[in-house]
Design a protein around this nucleic acid. Structure first.
Lengths: 215, 215
DNA sequence: CGGACCCTTGATAGCTTTCAAGTCAGGTGG
DNA sequence: CCACCTGACTTGAAAGCTATCAAGGGTCCG
């Protein structure tokens, strides 16, 4: 039901060894919810193609996106009873699903699987800590620059980025408003840091300057 | 060298089963650095008594505190080569130390130890995600209220809190400035939510109202 | 062509920061 | 015992960054 291989075909330019869930395949359209916050966390997923967001919502509607996920990423991994964030597709997505009970059982008997789960969790923690630093101590333009560079790295793009999310998604990930994100893009254009062939494509024209902003 | 027990004496009112590192004991004075960001991560620690902060610093000096730790907490757990944050004591601290290599080896051969490491990492991730939501989408007074309630819960205090950190530490944890934290405390006092017997003691007078702010 | 959604831009408001004093508490030494 | 010193904390005034409110433009699609 599950295999641990060196470099899964589904994750082209990504991390080292990855777990591959080998279960049911599901397809989702754009903007669909895979699971909701608070729902019983009885399944674990791996994204085969497409991209998605995980997010939490406060009572009054304020939304915080915790993470974006791309091909190869495992998501929906929980230790509690319920999902702590909702998972929603950004565009069409193909995912593999595995019952959590099965994964837990497998981790119980196979040390390498348990170890891989720890690696995945640690990687999430690392990203989350970077997110904290960004939200706590970086100004708007630094946050946007960090997101662009992260996107470039994770999607394996060199200079021309495909941006799968809306400005609102970016804002809710960066702890900003849609207007501030938009204005920052405009500013970056004027400063020659990026170009915007279309709304959803970003050409990095001065990566060094962007990296300088992030650290 | 290491045992997994139900409820260690070092952690009075805390989580379920906890790992206990059984190695060298060390004592630190107030404001001492246990390890620095970027240093080789070759040891794992458990706090026996006292409290500490883990933090990261940007080139220009901006500081973000990632977490506060209290008696029983394990810290310094890394999978990379180096520590990603520094650990500094808030007051006098007593810690146990274990070589990381030993812990890794033990996790390799004992499933329960490996599982406990995953639990610890997951718990850190859960806290980190709450931190992200707070920094991204909460206003100043909500952040301060959240910190006070978290402190109350983690130190087992009912109404009278001992605050082991400075206002600056709180600010750097909450993504605010020291002045804003101070003003918020003053405001809370005026509104009858808290009282401040001393600077470092907080009496929760209206916990319901504070909880209402946090969600 | 109309509608819906997304994005951009402008003007204004507001929360938090910055800058600047001033107060307070704890520890030291005369 | 008390003056003094230092670090921590509080408070005030002004500035600034980002949010809010509002309107307009663009694009895709039925």
């Amino acid at each position: 039901m599950l295999s641990v291989i060196q470099s899964p075909a589904v994750a082209p330019v990504r991390q080292p060894a990855a777990i591959v869930l080998d279960g049911l395949h599901l397809n989702f359209g754009p903007g669909e919810t895979i699971f909701d916050e608070g729902q019983p966390a009885d399944r674990v997923y791996q994204l085969i193609s497409g991209s998605l967001r995980t997010c939490r919502i406060l009572r009054d509607g304020r939304r915080q996106i915790e993470a974006f996920h791309f091909a190869g990423d495992v998501f929906g991994l929980e230790t509690g009873e319920t999902y702590r964030a909702a998972a929603q597709t950004l565009g069409p997505c193909s995912v593999r699903v595995m019952p959590r009970a099965a994964l837990d059982a497998l981790a119980q008997e196979r040390g390498d699987v348990a170890r891989r789960l720890l690696e995945l969790t640690t990687e999430s923690l690392r990203r989350c800590q970077d997110h904290v630093l960004m939200l706590g101590r970086r100004i708007a333009c630094e946050r946007v620059a960090a997101l662009l560079l992260d996107l470039a790295e994770r999607t394996g793009a060199h200079a021309l980025l495909d941006v799968p999310m809306t400005r609102q998604d970016m804002a809710d990930y960066l702890g900003l408003t849609i207007e501030t994100v938009s204005r920052t893009f405009t500013q970056f254009q004027h400063d020659g840091l990026i170009a915007l062939p279309t709304t959803r494509k970003v050409l990095l024209r001065d990566r060094a300057a962007l990296e300088e902003m992030v650290d």
